[in-house]
């Protein structure tokens, strides 16, 4: 598939004439194969963190040396450009630093980190020969490589065959249906007067505050009541402003900080000693046996894409998480023994 991403100019050189020196090709010989070796430079975007395939770039000519226009400058100019440097990094990538002058005559330094991947493809000699055929008909004038008007790449489709595909499909549908049913029985209820109409249409909307709130309490208890007591005992005095974290009886702040994350942490496992080669999907597959997994986070090195060795797995149910914790602790995965424990609350 990546051939699409690296179009035309390279494609010729990337299909060397492999069928050469083979003598007459036996048409029915299916065992004969050629090995082709191609090298594809791959730019590593610095901000890249996800596992999706990294975009491939073709090596422009400028990568190796300065533009021809700059060559003159190089000779004449006093501020000659420093020579390009190429260093090999520990993780197998290469850093190439090039210098050039831009249109305004300013020096520009370009640093690129490139990973070279060698793609070997075993191809039948007949297939290799057919790849060198020239185009004809409506495509006669097209450049080598896929033409953009006839060939495009569709969106990614996840196709995972499953033995109980039908059942899975049915399970999904009733869920949607039941939601609908729930909503069907739901009656419209006004927040201000509890009547059977939308709040926006309430006849009291300008005169009353919603039920259970400060204003309504006022109305219910009469104007003589002490409003300060409702506002957590802090709103006393002339000022009616209550800071957000003190509203609703002062408990709001706590809830906000803890609420969602607390629940999350309860069913979240921390997995350590994970292999570098692990993938999120593999972890998900392993842990899904114990219950519905809502989130899998595998820490990865943003440059190399290798796992850092720990992961977090959130379950829907704490009981499932506990089961998984018990079973998976000490489980051997990719030559390493996993350590699974409940994640500690973030400080």
């Amino acid at each position: 598939m990546f051939e699409l991403a690296t179009p035309s100019p390279n494609s010729k050189s990337r299909y060397p004439a492999v069928a050469n020196n083979r003598g007459p090709t036996n048409i029915y010989n299916f065992e004969r194969h050629d090995i082709r070796t191609t090298t594809t430079p791959q730019l590593l975007p610095h901000t890249h963190t996800s596992t999706s395939p990294e975009p491939l770039f073709k090596m422009s000519k400028a990568a190796g040396r300065a533009d021809w226009a700059d060559d003159e400058d190089l000779d004449d100019n006093v501020n000659a450009l420093p020579p390009d440097t190429t260093t090999t990094n520990k993780d197998g990538t290469k850093t190439i630093i090039t210098y050039r002058f831009n249109d305004e005559g300013k020096k520009v330094k370009t640093t690129r980190r490139i990973r070279f991947t060698t793609v070997k493809e075993v191809v039948n000699p007949r297939v290799a020969e057919r790849k060198s055929w020239s185009k004809f008909g409506l495509s006669g004038k097209d450049a080598p490589g896929p033409a953009s008007d006839t060939t495009s790449v569709g969106e990614n489709i996840i196709f995972r065959p499953s033995a109980n595909w039908k059942k899975d499909q049915k399970e999904e549908k009733p869920e949607a249906g039941s939601m609908k049913d729930k909503l069907k029985d739901k009656k419209v209820k006004c927040r201000i007067c509890n009547g059977e109409h939308f709040t926006a249409r309430c006849p009291f909307k300008d005169t009353m505050a919603p039920v259970g709130e400060e204003g309504s309490a006022d109305v219910a208890a009469g104007p003589g009541d002490e409003p300060a007591s409702v506002a957590g005992g802090l709103g006393a005095g002339k000022s009616s402003y209550v800071p957000p974290h003190l509203r609703n009886g002062g408990g709001g702040g706590e809830k906000m900080g803890g609420g969602k994350f607390e629940r999350d942490d309860l069913a979240t496992l921390r997995v350590t000693n994970v292999s570098e080669m692990a993938e999120e999907q593999e972890l998900r597959d392993m842990f899904e046996r114990f219950g519905r997994v809502t989130r899998v986070f595998l820490a990865k090195d943003r440059e190399t894409g290798l796992a850092k060795g720990f992961a977090f797995i959130s379950f829907q149910e704490r009981t499932d998480a506990a089961k998984a914790c018990e079973k998976m602790d000490g489980y051997g995965f990719k030559h390493l023994i996993l350590r699974v424990e409940f994640a500690k609350k973030a400080q």
Partner: peptide, 8 residues
């Protein structure tokens, strides 16, 4: 392999 049109 890449959807390139050979011809018509």
């Amino acid at each position: 392999h890449n959807g390139e049109r050979l011809g018509t």
